[in-house]
Design a protein around this nucleic acid. Structure first.
Length: 813
RNA sequence: GGACAAUUAGCUCAGUUGGUUAGAGCGCUACAUUCACACUGUAGAGGUCACUGGUUCGAGUCCAGUAUUGUCCACCA
């Protein structure tokens, strides 16, 4: 026989119920299950070895919604997948296996990536199970698996056929460290100090033209000098040629309004390419291309004697040489912001290269409109998407000069360069090992060159609705299921994952991908700073679960309104654990008094006959409060406002139920005399049904503890096999009673007054009171007189007297 | 420079459409108690709701402006 512990022990119960849920298939999804489908486009986490606290925060929010909808009777599609291709995975494998992809054979590296993923993915996914995610883990997608490769390639071909994707040689943002093109969304800012150098260009009349630049190493790719058309200093020079120092070539002086007259000397060199403005001028004025940096960030032959140097070394060397020739006439220290690659923190360059792009610039208006069709939680997050779209400068570059990713299903005709697409039947394919069928459709050539580039990881994860739906639906049925109901995610990837998914859905299906989105905030440290390894302020959710349990972690995560960041606080998690213990003990107490059986009976409440008794007025009060709780929490959940649902439940349970109602009816529960039979039965029925209702309301937040309590105390052979299959409580209109709630309030006020009286005098709470005099109006008197016996009992009061009065007043002697 | 958000008790935060005395948790102080729970109970101290104006019978809540903080974007010659 098992003793029922005074403490709730999560480390014992949580693993037990994880196994149970999986074995019983509690969260299994099938399109044939009962209920309307509620589909969630779960974010596939990037495989990184371990789940971090930010994941735990954001994913539990999704799980609250999924569990709530399931209890409401919806057929919840809550899939799971991992994002494990592209640069992030390459970098992880390089780190774990201490290799450099660029120094290995392509296929060897790809094999190593696949092997490593096989090793680490199971443990990684286990972390998601441990926090209590109610996903159907029986089918999981991985963005590098065969089906995802096939889907990704298929939809690439769809884009190509719809002329929404194109290949072009053009300036593109380039990471010299990763040696690949990257997208605008992958940039980060970095503050840096540098010098503004005043450099002399000679004019034909031997006079000096001073230009100011932070990047003298790009002198060799200077193709023009620009001045403002209204700048009186330079007006006469427009159209003339200036001589580039050191390299001696002559470039035209041109006028453009983009030049800031006040900045530097008011004359600026245009290098192909130093920055975005250079690119714009290059295009607008059809300037020549002069490449002085290569793909690894080293100077090219164009830089003559500086060739082979890194950009940084070339800069100092050129400055030195300019000084010697007296062509550097000033240096000013300035702070400015550089763009760096978010994955490796390297300063990016702009290079001319051939890349695949998805068209977005021409679709801005349409995309903003789609953003408006989606319902956002919280509303203000929509503005972030809108601002991002408005500020876009480049089409979406999806090709990466990397190895571990999904290949483009494309060859090029060796003769004419025409694109040759793979046959849809043959997908997934790798053009490096497969051969295309047939001849070039343009020139009839039969020799083809395979595309070596792979797609960016977002090019696949932006298809997540399709990838998720395909786990459970036939390919032809997928489109019918779009829009999905909900996309939950954190706010940092609105400009990537959210945006790209909208782009793809627009092109492939001409509709929004989901009808609603729910955006979570971030976890900061206890001082409100970002968590980072370098600050040493990170928190491991695995340790929190070990020490406090997943339920306590989830309860903490429910405590902040949607979209807000949360500061990590161990005290708050502790508070969650206290709540579980309190809930456990309250149930233990109730069950002890419901059934005369010994407490070592492991299913004590299961024998309780659930017959509605004739309810006492005090009992009607707490039941009325409960109906209100059901109504408000339901409303909150419908708005994804789980934090106010949590607060309402906490307040109800701790203050109304435990501190007041239970204390008030204790005496009725203890008294087993025949005279009290009805009073006892009424209290028993009330407590049983209040707790069972509350348990179901709490189940989305604390799925383990509620399951343990349900299985230990409530479940009989006839009942559902899990609390999570018990359904969401409905508010009972017959029990909702505003008058009783008002009376209850006064009841609590009277109890508080008595407690205060005793506390002030240092008396025991059990101390006897001679007389309590209540002044109130006639209506109030009727309302509270009903509960007079309960009142007397809880306060140990000999006599209660009523007096007429307009305002409620309590006199104690 | 632009957009968005935040500013309420010592700390972390709630506060629905304007409506009596602004709430909770943690922390603090005093007391109680082994009768579900010390991971407890009761009581107490603690607030000019960032600031300045305005609308209103009435503003933490609505409007305008200011300040501070955070996030994203722009700037990068």
């Amino acid at each position: 026989m098992k003793e029922i512990s005074k403490r709730y022990n999560p480390s014992e119960t949580e693993p037990k119920w994880l196994v149970f849920w999986e074995k019983e298939g509690i969260y299994k999804f099938s399109p044939k299950n009962k209920g309307d489908v509620f589909s969630i486009d779960t974010p596939p986490p990037t495989v990184s070895g371990k789940m971090h606290i930010g994941h735990a925060y954001s994913y539990t929010h999704e799980d609250f919604v999924a569990r709530y909808q399931k209890m409401r009777g919806k057929n919840v599609l809550f899939p799971f997948g991992t994002d494990d291709n592209g640069l992030p995975t390459e970098r992880l494998v390089e780190k774990l296996k201490k290799v450099r992809a660029s120094k290995m054979k392509r296929q060897d590296f790809i094999d190593l990536c696949n092997e490593t993923l096989k090793e680490i993915t199971p443990d990684f996914v286990a972390d998601w199970k441990k926090i209590g995610m109610s996903c159907d883990f029986s089918k999981i997608y991985s963005t590098i698996d065969d089906n995802c490769r096939r889907v990704s390639q298929k939809f690439f071909i769809d884009l190509y056929k719809k002329q929404k994707v194109y290949r072009q040689e053009a300036p593109v943002v380039w990471c010299p460290h990763c040696q690949t093109a990257i997208a605008q969304a992958e940039l980060e800012d970095k503050e840096a100090e540098t010098f503004f150098n005043d450099i002399v260009f000679k004019l034909p009349n031997k006079k000096n033209l001073v230009i100011a630049t932070t990047r003298p190493e790009l002198l060799s790719s200077c193709v023009a000098v620009f001045v403002h058309p209204g700048d009186k200093r330079y007006k006469k020079l427009i159209g003339q040629k200036a001589q580039v120092p050191i390299f001696q070539n002559r470039v035209e002086i041109m006028a453009d309004k983009k030049v800031d007259m006040k900045k530097g000397s008011g004359a600026v060199m245009c290098c192909t390419f130093g920055d975005k403005t250079d690119v714009e001028w290059f295009k607008e004025y059809k300037l020549p291309l002069a490449v002085s940096l290569d793909k690894a960030g080293l100077m090219t032959e164009k830089a003559k004697k500086y060739a082979g140097l890194s950009a940084k070394d070339a800069r100092s060397k050129i400055i030195e040489d300019l000084k010697k020739k007296n062509l550097l006439i000033g240096q000013k220290k300035i702070a400015h912001t550089l763009n760096i690659h978010e994955r490796c923190k390297t300063e990016v360059e702009i290079l001319n290269s051939e890349q695949w792009y998805v068209k977005v610039l021409g679709e801005k208006k349409k995309l903003i409109g789609l953003g408006e069709e989606i319902k956002w939680h919280p509303e203000f997050m929509r503005t972030r998407l809108e601002n991002w779209i408005k500020g876009l400068n480049w089409d979406w570059c999806i090709s990466r000069q990397r190895f571990f990713g999904i290949p483009f299903p494309v060859w090029y005709c060796a003769k004419c360069g025409e694109v040759k697409l793979a046959d849809e039947k043959d997908l997934p394919i790798d053009p490096l090992s497969a051969k295309p069928k047939g001849k070039c459709e343009k020139c009839g050539g039969s020799k083809f060159i395979p595309e070596r580039d792979v797609m960016d990881t977002w090019a696949t994860s932006s298809l997540s609705p399709v990838l998720a739906l395909q786990l459970f639906y036939k390919e032809n049925d997928v489109e019918k299921m779009i829009p999905m109901n909900l996309r939950p995610q954190a706010h940092d990837i609105i400009s990537t994952w959210l945006f790209y998914t909208v782009v793809r859905s627009n092109y492939h299906f001409e509709k929004i991908p989901w009808s609603e989105v729910m955006i979570s905030g971030h976890v900061l440290d206890s001082a409100g700073r970002k968590m980072s390894k370098s600050l040493g302020n990170t928190v491991e959710p695995q340790k929190i679960i070990e020490n406090f349990g997943a339920d306590a972690l989830r309860f903490w995560a429910a405590g902040r309104t949607l979209g807000q960041n949360i500061n990590f606080s161990e005290e708050e998690i502790q508070a969650g654990k206290k709540f579980l213990t309190k809930l456990w003990n309250a149930t233990r107490f109730v069950m002890m008094n419901i059934n005369t059986r010994e407490l070592n009976n492991s299913r004590i409440g299961a024998n309780y006959k659930r017959i509605r008794a004739n309810l006492y007025p005090t009992d009607k009060w707490i039941l009325a409060e409960l109906q209100e709780l059901v109504a408000t929490t339901t409303k909150s959940f419908e708005k994804y406002d789980y934090s106010s649902a949590k607060m309402a439940m906490e307040k109800f349970f701790w203050i109304k139920l435990a501190d007041n109602y239970i204390e008030i009816v204790k005496n009725r529960l203890y008294d087993e005399s025949p005279k009290n039979k009805k009073g006892r039965e009424s209290a028993q029925y009330t407590l049983y049904s209040v707790l069972f209702t509350l348990l179901r309301l709490l189940a989305p937040f604390i799925p383990f503890a509620t399951e343990e309590i349900y299985q230990t105390f409530f479940k009989s052979a006839k009942d559902a096999k899990s609390i999570h299959l018990c359904g969401w409580p409905e508010a009972d209109k017959k029990l909702a009673d505003k008058k009783k709630i008002k009376a209850g309030k006064i009841l609590v006020e009277i109890v508080a007054a008595m407690r205060k009286h005793k506390a002030e005098r240092g008396l025991s709470m059990k101390a006897e009171l001679e007389k309590v005099e209540i002044s109130c109006d006639a209506k109030t008197k009727i309302a509270i007189q009903e509960s007079i016996d309960d009142m007397k009992a809880v306060g140990n009061i000999k006599e209660i007297k009523f007096k007429k009065g307009n305002k409620l007043a309590i006199k104690i002697s």
